[in-house]
């Protein structure tokens, strides 16, 4: 699957993360300094980076800021978790942020979401439970059978699948569906979700669309 570079100075921790992500099917390279990270990035094309902020030969935030041109998405790990550090990290170009300590499942989920962002090299089929979505053809299959969806329904499920397990805010949905209709009312979004839900249920999809009233929607594998 994806090739991930782990930049973490604690060698045992780097090893554990590599093992954990390896079990998820990722190919991981672990380095312990920024200098080694530069070497690794010069020689190999990575799909994602897991970066610890406090490294022996420099600060991760400064390093991110110095990166120019296209680069893989970065998930920052930090032991600091001071609110200001979080903002500083995201400003410097981190794509997501995970404070230590974290569970492997958490790291894997966040990384999966990053790799699923559009435009990444990982722009392949999005899968959740027994459902698969091909962004290129906008085709949804449940357990191998194609599901008939309108363009708007397909766009909505793509949005939710790209952030599976995370809540997608209502405003984000309204903005990205705007192109299909002149005005997207909250009711229209809710109606589309209901139709999607019914279709998924009829097709026997092991996937749930949760409504977080007043906030947004979330797709999760059933029983997850």
């Amino acid at each position: 699957m994806a090739r991930v570079l782990i930049i973490e100075d604690n060698e045992r921790l780097a090893g554990l993360i590599a093992d954990g992500l390896g079990a998820q099917g990722h190919v991981c390279d672990a380095v312990h300094t920024l200098a080694a990270a530069e070497d690794a990035l010069a020689g190999t094309l990575f799909d994602g980076i897991v970066l610890d902020l406090g490294l022996p030969d420099g600060d991760g935030v400064d390093w991110m800021r110095a990166q120019h041109g296209p680069r893989p998405p970065i998930l920052v790990l930090t032991a600091r978790d001071a609110l200001e550090d979080r903002i500083r990290g995201l400003d410097a170009g981190a794509d997501d942020y995970l404070p230590k300590p974290f569970a492997m499942s958490e790291l894997a989920a966040r990384l999966r979401a990053l790799l699923r962002r559009p435009g990444g090299r990982q722009d392949a089929v999005l899968a959740l439970g027994n459902l698969a979505f091909d962004p290129a053809s906008q085709r949804v299959t449940v357990a191998g059978t194609t599901l008939e969806l309108t363009r708007r329904e397909a766009a909505l499920i793509e949005l939710l699948l790209r952030r599976a397990g995370q809540v997608v805010r209502r405003a984000v949905i309204e903005n990205s569906l705007y192109t299909f209709d002149e005005a997207v009312t909250p009711n229209a979004v809710e109606a589309t979700i209901s139709r999607l839900r019914r279709k998924l249920e009829e097709a026997g999809a092991a996937l749930e669309l949760h409504t977080i009233r007043g906030v947004g929607y979330m797709a999760r594998a059933r029983g997850a």
Partner: peptide, 13 residues
């Protein structure tokens, strides 16, 4: 935080 992360990841296994 770092030792706790190690502990948490080891427990995961």
């Amino acid at each position: 935080r770092t030792p706790l992360t190690l502990l948490s990841l080891e427990l995961d296994r």
